[in-house]
Design a protein around this nucleic acid. Structure first.
Length: 738
DNA sequence: GACATATCTAAAGCC
DNA sequence: TAGATATGTC
């Protein structure tokens, strides 16, 4: 029991409190993983609880793996217990019980790319105005519904008879039918269907309730309704539920996370015990204080104040760059300077708000020969070549997977175009068989062009062959066989260009992934492997041992820490992003994100902004972030100019308009309305040839002007007709006349 | 059916 | 601006 000596009194209290509901409010860097793993070890070693009876749920595979490793090192042996992500836990439940819901046991899991492909087909069939109704539009609503446990009918009932709702309803229904037909579930279904199983089958629920006498949930602040329901149902019987979270780090509300889950835990579970972990072991006192000076501006948070026994440390550095290149240059220079022998490049992280910011940093780092690694952006498993070969593997596993077949039917090129595919699909539908079945019909195939029929015959043959023998072959052998047998590799080699080369490289990398899995599990079967990769994410890829500066978004950085952290782009409109003002609480969520970013730093924190930034082809002067202005100035060192130079900088502007335009869109709207009123009162009119500015379209020249309509040709080349008197136009006054 | 050109759009992304 | 996708042309 001496291992508990490593814990502070609060941590220990949390670890020892095993019976009944427990809420651990764990501030950033307060050792929550350590507390949880000790709690598990305590349950097993001291309370004699069989690991079989414990469930620990996390959000990422990485977090799950880390927890498992640490538990195992505490109790010194492998543990047979469920330490899983929400999705893999649900998947396990469903592998056993999905038949209850009408799925076959070997159902497949659709990732977002599959979802999109499926939805694309539906949109096409519905013959909709595809400007307004994109696959992404439907899918986001459907995902919303599934998170709230609304099936298509309930959605319709909830949102009424609005024609738009009806169309979404139809798309939702068709989508569900299609998935069911393909024996597939998307990520949201995994959770939803697990809950459905529990609701429909009392015996099944009881089985898991009896099994999981002790339940723990990590990052509880980021759970959504369906995850909450899943946990609540499981914990209902024994009520030994321990949730860990920090309301200040809830940064996924836009994805359905409901901060109320953590704020109201005590209501959901009366007589819940609450333990606050407020000692921070990660950051210097200055970093902590600065982070606190930001987050304390949020309302409706659980009051807590982190403290540390660490020294103040250096002040927070702030640099106001001229533009984004200067900003990146500064960051690279600092890294060069700070990189001593005893440090690794991986001790440095650049955490930005949007992935689009990564490029300038990549350039600046390469110029100085600093190794770096970008996480996020295009996921490895989203690369075309990887998706293609995975589709082949899926077909081997299940030839009836139409979606997979559609993806690769002409990949490599077999001379089968959209029209041919349409015809084949129609035929398959009429016959009520899968597309692969149709392709096995020699009569059908011989009706195609010579090139197409030969291509299809050989593809069908290869897939059938591996399908038959898959249980005798290793996954890597199937993989190799498919690359060659389908002609995929050859087609790439023949392209003989850089792009094809990098694709081949990725395919080779994918093979080493397979080898890695086979090393762990000699008996690895194709279905096993497919299941593993279905639920992988990009952060799982972060390899701490790699000696490279890490570039990623602040979102991905949650849960990580680095000695040196750079937070660039602290400008109104970028961070906080302007969209933050569209939603209620939007700004508060951004502020939490800022807090998360700042508290990733152990020793030093660098903040930067650029006074001029080019984004989406438009160059604008910027204003320093509201978050900078909120920060305690005493803690900041360097270019802490945002009081002095603010006025001068803000009054500069490229086109004379944004000079006065308030950033906050609410104020902007007010401002525009006010201008319109003013103009109406003063009777301001425009004449042909006048230079004008528009808040959205920028500078322009009046082409036609009547008392009803003003036609303006804007600098971006567009010509817009605007309603005279209402359009938010202002006369452009050149700089020297202002 | 393959390739070239026009058009559109632009946050974050656990699983 | 840049990339992804839709449309048009041969």
């Amino acid at each position: 029991m001496d291992y508990l000596d490593n814990l502070n009194p609060q941590q220990r209290e949390a670890a020892l409190y095993t019976e009944g509901p427990l809420l651990i409010l764990a501030g950033a860097g307060s050792g929550k993983t350590s507390t949880m793993t000790h709690r598990i070890a305590y349950l097993i070693e001291e309370k004699g609880v069989n690991p079989y009876h414990i469930l620990a749920v996390t959000f990422t595979n990485k977090a799950a793996q880390e927890m498992r490793d640490r538990v195992e090192s505490l109790i010194g042996s492998g543990v047979n217990m469920w330490i899983l992500t929400f999705h893999s836990a649900c998947l396990r439940v469903l592998r056993k019980h999905a038949q209850l819901l009408g799925y076959k046991k070997d159902f497949v899991v659709y990732d977002p790319t599959d979802q999109k492909a499926a939805m694309k087909n539906i949109v096409k069939e519905m013959n909709l105005d595809d400007k307004r109704y994109t696959p992404a539009y439907f899918l986001s609503i459907i995902s919303d519904c599934k998170e709230k446990e609304l099936d298509p009918k309930q959605y319709l009932a909830t949102y009424g008879e609005d024609p738009k709702t009806k169309i979404v309803y139809q798309a939702y229904r068709s989508y569900e039918t299609l998935l069911k037909k393909n024996n597939a579930m998307d990520f949201d279904d995994l959770l939803l269907n697990a809950v459905r199983v529990f609701k429909q089958d009392e015996a099944a629920l009881l089985e898991y309730q009896n099994r999981f006498q002790y339940i723990m949930v990590d990052e509880y602040q980021d759970t959504n309704f369906i995850q909450y329901t899943f946990i609540k149902m499981l914990a209902e019987k024994h009520k030994n539920l321990c949730v860990v979270g920090d309301d200040d780090q809830c940064i996924y509300q836009w994805r359905g996370a409901d901060i109320r889950n953590i704020l109201e835990f005590e209501k959901d579970f009366p007589n819940a015990k609450v333990v606050k972990l407020e000692q921070n072991y990660r950051s210097t006192a200055n970093i902590l204080a600065a982070a606190h000076s930001v987050i304390e501006k949020n309302r409706g948070r659980k009051e807590k104040k982190l403290w540390t026994s660490k020294a103040d440390g250096q002040k927070i550095a702030y640099y106001r760059a001229d533009d984004e290149r200067d900003e990146a240059h500064y960051v690279a220079q600092q890294i060069d300077h700070l990189k001593r022998k005893d440090l690794r490049y991986s001790d440095f992280a650049i955490l930005y708000r949007t992935n689009a910011q990564s490029r300038t940093f990549e350039e600046a780092l390469s110029r100085r020969d600093i190794p770096y690694r970008v996480l996020g952006g295009l996921r490895y498993y989203d690369r075309k070549e990887v998706k293609d070969i995975v589709s082949y593997m899926r077909l081997v596993q299940n030839p009836d997977d139409d979606l997979a077949l559609l993806r690769i039917i002409n990949e490599p090129k077999r001379g089968i175009g959209a029209r041919t595919v349409d015809k084949l699909q129609a035929l398959a539908r009429v016959r009520g068989e899968s597309l692969f079945d149709t392709l096995m019909d020699e009569e059908v195939v011989s009706g195609l062009s010579a090139k197409a029929s030969a291509g299809i015959r050989s593809m069908v043959e290869v897939i059938q062959q591996y399908s038959k023998e898959q249980s005798n072959l290793r996954v890597s052998d199937i993989y190799d066989g498919l690359l060659v047998g389908t002609g995929y590799l050859k087609a790439l080699e023949e392209q003989n260009n850089l792009e094809a080369e990098s694709r081949i490289e990725n395919l080779m990398e994918f093979k080493s992934v397979i080898y890695d899995y086979e090393k762990d599990d000699e008996q690895l079967s194709l279905p096993d492997f497919m299941e593993r990769i279905a639920l992988l994410a990009e952060v799982d890829n972060h390899d701490e041992s790699e000696n490279a500066v890490v570039l990623m978004t602040m979102h991905s950085a949650k849960g990580l820490e680095f000695p040196f952290v750079f937070l660039p782009g602290l400008e109104d409109g970028l961070f906080p992003g302007w969209r933050a003002f569209e939603k209620e609480d939007g700004l508060e969520e951004e502020r939490r994100l800022c807090y998360v970013g700042m508290t990733r730093a152990r020793e030093r924190l660098f903040l930067t902004s650029a006074s001029m930034r080019t984004l989406y082809g438009k160059t604008d002067y910027t204003r320093e972030s509201q978050f900078l202005r909120e920060m305690d100035k005493h803690l900041i060192d360097g270019d802490a100019i945002f009081e002095k130079k603010k006025e001068a900088r803000n009054s500069r502007s490229l086109d004379g308009y944004s000079r006065e335009t308030p950033f906050n869109p609410f104020d902007q709207l007010k401002y525009v309305k006010q201008q319109v009123r003013q103009r109406a009162a003063s009777g301001e009119t425009f004449q042909v040839g006048d230079d004008v500015t528009h808040p959205k379209f920028g500078r322009g020249t009046v082409l036609k002007a009547s008392d009803k309509i003003i036609e303006v040709s804007f600098r971006d080349g567009s010509v817009k007709k605007l309603a005279a008197g209402i359009a938010p136009l202002t006369r452009y006054i050149p700089k020297n006349e202002r």
